[in-house]
Write a protein that binds this DNA or RNA. Structure first.
Lengths: 335, 335
DNA sequence: TTGTAGGCGTTATCAT
DNA sequence: ATGATAACGCCTACAA
């Protein structure tokens, strides 16, 4: 159904290998035939088959990126920086979503491997420790984000970021600080929870499991978790949230329950989305170096593709951005 | 570097074709050898090459989806519904971003065609009338969204949606209604602009080009456009925005300029993102049937893949959702 | 039920 | 500078 180099060869009265050379700017070919063939290819509507080519060259110049879902605004700058850098290096990027489902994530990696992509980046893996043993099942370069049990992983410093955020709340006088989690991002969630506990520890505040609620990284998840926390413990004064969308959900729930932020309750997010700055009130949050993470992930992957194997996991710094959703605790006599 | 059917054949002491049959559940093969080979394939870590297979079967069971950018939250439900339906029909979906650049969009379609995907869906094409003539350049099924110059296109009724939104503002007493555009989504923008003009026309309000500002579909674009409009025409009382993110940007700019919404100015968005309901104040907006659009696009593509050619373009209805960002004009003596 | 042979579209090696 | 040939991994008639 589509034009092949043989069709062009026949039309030009040359052999297929000559056509191949002409189309690939091979040095050993006459300018005349090269131009003739290129023109012919153009007007015959020839587009090379990556299948045929990939089969013989054993490389597809393609990078597969596995994301959780197209919905997550946090992914945007990360993916964009990956695409940018891939393009600069002659690679095409394809995305595939896992829907935060470990099985589908595996399916996405398999789909990429079946198509023999040059390498894969998995953002927000659900498969905790599995990639170690996946290396012989899918023998291709794989780079993860936020997974410290895997040698090739680019992470931001979730532990320190979370610790600082919660320390900030404690410094403002908050003693009852809730954490709203996101089990869908297993590793990341674990780290942020660890930072949360470290900050409490340091301040001598005992961990209260009733102040830990389960979210899912979305606005709705934040609303539900906040509602649940508000009914079980009305005394808590601050929320540390897995991410910004969760934090916005919390603020919505608080508003619906008649509380004002930050007068009555303080809220901290994570990610520093564009929206965080422009939400009203503007979100206090922890900024991740998203673009940097994407570039580092891509650079590591390129090195792996080129055969460098001495790559070390990297942890990039995070930064607490204090805006308008955190404030001091109002003493009880002020009410 | 990876295991092939010949490796398995050698290990099992059979011919490659027997292995192929065993792996593809071919009827004419003994159960014993089938199980032996399947087990062997498993433990040897065999994963078939889609390159070799696709070359001979002439189909890859893959759908390519071209999106503008991973950043656009409007895309999420659309893409998700496409993925869902593709999965149910045995297809794998890959995403590729065009960054709203016509050249890159073409590159994405080409990349998909080179890999001989079964079909392509382009969401928010930048190539206005080009797909008509692209059909012989890339002879594979292509479905677009929101492009009325192309036979296989799934659109929502942008004209009517925009008209109703602006009519709603006019009914509230607004006479000076601005439109903030988004040239990056050419066709869609044209339609929404048309609806805007129709509503003005119907009310006998002359079109004022000074009330039309250029945005880019993002929050920042909305902020900039609103600032520009506010300096050039302080009398305008309402903004009809290309989409919800633009509308949020407008609200931010209004707040910064000391205006309250909807008391001083009214704002209408488009898309009805999740965020629209939860923003404060909640956005009046035009809802698109996003999931439905995705399903329809995928269904049309599947029909094209299966050889049905009598598909007609569809326009799905939109719905005005009135919330808290629109209100009556306050008469000047009220100030 | 299994093996043999040919070919999918392309590139690479070796002659010419 | 060009052509013939083989090979990449897989599937599928056809033959056994």
């Amino acid at each position: 159904v589509s034009v092949t180099i043989r069709d062009i060869a026949q039309a030009a009265g040359v052999s297929p290998s000559t056509v191949s050379r002409a189309l690939n700017d091979h040095p050993r070919i006459s300018v005349a035939t090269k131009e003739l063939i290129q023109q012919l290819a153009q007007q015959m509507g020839y587009t090379p088959s990556a299948l045929g080519r990939g089969l013989v060259t054993r490389q597809t110049a393609t990078i597969g990126v596995v994301i959780t879902t197209a919905l997550d605004p946090f992914l945007a700058p990360l993916v964009t920086s990956i695409e940018e850098m891939a393009r600069d290096n002659g690679y095409t990027v394809f995305l595939s979503s896992s829907c935060s489902d470990p099985e589908r994530e595996l399916g996405a990696v398999r789909a990429f491997y079946e198509r023999r992509v040059s390498g894969v980046i998995v953002i927000g893996s659900q498969i905790e420790e599995g990639y170690f043993k996946l290396r012989d099942r899918f023998p291709l370069p794989i780079v993860l984000t936020n997974c410290r049990t895997y040698p090739y992983s680019i992470a931001s410093d979730n532990v320190v970021g979370a610790r600082r955020a919660v320390a900030h709340l404690i410094q403002l006088g908050h003693r009852l600080v809730a954490y709203i989690s996101n089990p869908r991002s297993h590793c990341t969630n674990l780290d942020r929870y660890a930072g949360y506990r470290q900050a409490l520890d340091k301040a001598g505040i005992p961990l209260d499991q009733n102040l830990v609620a389960e979210g899912n990284g979305t606005l709705d998840g934040g609303i539900n978790a906040a509602r649940q926390l508000l009914t079980s413990s009305q005394l808590l004064t601050a929320f540390f949230c897995f991410n910004d969308m969760t934090a916005i959900g919390v603020i919505v729930a608080l508003r619906q329950a008649g509380f004002q932020v930050p007068r009555d309750k303080s809220v901290v997010g994570f990610d520093d989305l564009d929206l965080a700055l422009y939400y009203h009130p503007a979100l206090t949050t922890v900024r991740q170096p998203t673009c940097h993470m994407g570039q580092r992930a891509m650079r590591t992957l390129l090195e792996l593709i080129r055969g460098k194997d001495d790559v070390r996991p990297e942890i990039l710094p995070t930064e607490l951005i204090i805006r308008e959703t955190t404030g001091p605790v109002i003493s009880s006599d002020g009410q």
